[in-house]
């Protein structure tokens, strides 16, 4: 078993209204960033877990996303490997 850190990114599905993103978009425009034409807000979740190898860690994270971390009706998710964690702590 090794320890891995995984980053999960959950984001609103394309086409769905993202009122939070819209509010930030307007705010950026009013700050003078007129070139900003779209903002979408998602969330990043960092998970440290034990797994046999990288593939197993990624697979486990995928299952977590489908079961709890993302709502398939409104959100998409991406799972990426940050890296192996050496020793204890961090």
């Amino acid at each position: 078993m090794s320890q891995y850190r995984i980053e999960v990114r959950v984001k609103p599905r394309p086409g769905l209204l993202d009122p939070q993103g819209k509010a930030i978009h307007h705010s950026l425009n009013s700050l003078g960033w007129e070139g900003v034409h779209d903002v979408r807000v998602g969330k990043a979740i960092y998970i440290d877990l034990d797994a046999a190898d990288e593939a197993a860690a990624l697979e486990a994270a995928g299952v977590m996303c489908r079961k709890l971390l993302a709502n398939p009706v409104t959100e998409d998710f991406e799972v990426t490997m940050v890296g192996a964690l050496e020793g204890a702590g961090s």
Binding site: L16, L17, P19, Q20, K22, A23, N71, V73, T74
Partner: peptide
């Protein structure tokens, strides 16, 4: 109930924020 799959769909943030 929506999260549990007993009802379809989802309840998102109010459009008025």
């Amino acid at each position: 109930l929506c999260e549990a799959g007993l009802l379809p769909g989802a309840l998102m943030r109010n459009d008025v924020l």
